[in-house]
């Protein structure tokens, strides 16, 4: 795993090498710099830097020596067959894995150059900066207004009642939901349709003004029309937020993302510009996966 971005040499674990070797004769990991022209570093600086990330669930290792850069104000899609560690990785980025008792994360993950696993990082603050939207819409069993207002309220983002209302309206508008629910903000959020609920969750996430939004298969429970709306929304949000999205749909990855990372069995296979990955994947596993031959 040679990565030109990294100054320090990496020695992959023995198992890793063996497994890679046992695989097809293709080069183990394609590298960023070789396949794409480097993105304009000034307009899209590295937002999240991961190096040597290993994740264990008890004795079982789920991620192996992961190294990847997430660039600011871009959509990065994570693809790969089920169980390859996409969710595990995304949950490392706002330390949601802390809530799983058996999960253990090692390696370096930096947000704007700051190690998010260092002891002086406040995880509450981190999660306010790095929001997350889950696969299954999970609005709180409270009113639509309360769902969105909850985050700003606990973080003390609103100066008063009118301020809070403004945040709620703005967030709902940005999530493309306001027009549909403006007359029933006091109705339960759980009474909305699946697509509306997911957009409510997105509104809830952006209401706390995060810098990064993580989305773990946000459309897998939605119908095509709702999916299209969420995709539109993601495309819109990209201008202000850094977005990492896990998806099982190649079309979706191609439509919404600028960069794509392919995972396989806990390893990062390759990462690069979405166009490049889809038109000219360097790794056979990526090629097989996007042409639908496995996964």
């Amino acid at each position: 795993m040679s990565n030109p971005d990294m100054a320090e040499p990496i020695t992959p674990p023995a198992g890793h090498v063996a497994e890679e070797a046992a695989d097809d004769s293709v080069a183990p990991v394609a590298t960023v710099g070789e396949t794409d022209p480097a993105p304009a570093a000034d307009s899209h600086p590295v937002k999240i830097r991961s190096r040597n990330v290993d994740v264990f669930y008890g004795d079982k290792q789920a991620l192996f020596d992961l190294g990847i850069d997430i660039r600011a104000r871009m959509v990065t899609a994570l693809i790969g067959p089920s169980g390859c560690g996409k969710s595990t990785y995304i949950r490392c980025l706002n330390r949601m894995n802390d809530t799983i008792e058996i999960a253990r994360v090692s390696g370096l993950i930096e947000l704007d150059g700051q190690d998010i696993y260092s002891p002086d990082i406040d995880v509450v603050e981190l999660r306010a900066r790095v929001g997350i939207v889950f696969q299954k819409p999970n609005p709180f069993p409270k009113s639509i207004f309360e769902n969105v207002a909850y985050g700003p309220r606990i973080h003390g983002l609103a100066a008063g009642k009118t301020d809070l209302e403004e945040i709620v309206v703005t967030s709902l508008t940005r999530a493309g939901l306001f027009e549909e629910v403006k007359d029933r903000l006091e109705d339960p959020g759980t009474g909305l349709s699946g697509g509306q609920q997911q957009r409510l969750c997105i509104a809830r996430a952006i209401a706390v003004s995060p810098e990064v939004i993580l989305m773990d298969e946000p459309c897998s429970a939605l119908d095509p029309i709702a999916t299209a709306r969420v995709e539109e929304l993601i495309d819109d949000l990209r201008k202000n937020y850094t977005i990492v999205i896990v998806t099982h749909s190649m079309q979706q990855a191609a439509r919404v993302s600028q960069r794509t990372a392919m995972f396989h069995l806990g390893y990062l296979v390759e990462e690069g510009q979405t166009d490049a990955i889809f038109t000219n994947p360097t790794d056979k596993r990526t090629r097989d996966y996007i042409t639908g031959r496995y996964g």
Partner: peptide, 17 residues
């Protein structure tokens, strides 16, 4: 449901909140 806990934790609520 754990999804409720994750939802709250995910927007930065503390454990006790």
């Amino acid at each position: 449901p754990p999804s409720i806990r994750e939802g709250a934790l995910g927007i930065g609520a503390s454990r006790m909140q």
